[in-house]
């Protein structure tokens, strides 16, 4: 059972207080998108062994969604950041780069 820290209310707590919401930084495609774009949005996931960006909700706490950077292999969390962003903040990226040089995630690295 993981330990997470909610960047909204600052509470550090057990996984039972949170709810996982799949991969982060998905770009929504709606009407007008091609079949390939829409398929990518609905079904294609990075599913990485290693550096992973994911959505969490502090469901039994402040109720806010937030994002997390985690190593799925070692379970290390590199950091937690608000959901209202398209890319992780630089300090978290730097922390990841220190341990995983050359990592990448869809459009950014």
């Amino acid at each position: 059972m993981l330990i997470l820290e909610c960047p909204c209310c600052g509470v550090k707590s057990e996984e039972t207080e949170f709810h996982a919401g799949g991969e982060a930084h998905l770009k929504r495609f709606g009407p007008g998108s091609t079949d390939a774009e829409f398929e990518g949005y609905l079904f294609m996931r990075e599913n990485k062994r290693g550096v992973h960006f994911e959505r969490w909700r502090h469901v039994n706490g402040c109720g806010k969604w937030f994002l997390a950077a985690r190593d799925t292999n070692t379970l290390e969390f590199f950091g937690f950041y608000p959901a209202q962003t398209h890319e992780p903040p630089q300090d978290i990226k730097d922390k990841i780069s220190a341990k995983h040089p050359g990592w990448s995630w869809r459009e950014f690295q």
Binding site: L2, I3, D71, L75, E76, F77
Partner: peptide, 9 residues
């Protein structure tokens, strides 16, 4: 050298 790791690695 390869122990289980925690939330900070």
């Amino acid at each position: 050298s390869r122990a289980p790791t925690g939330d900070k690695g």
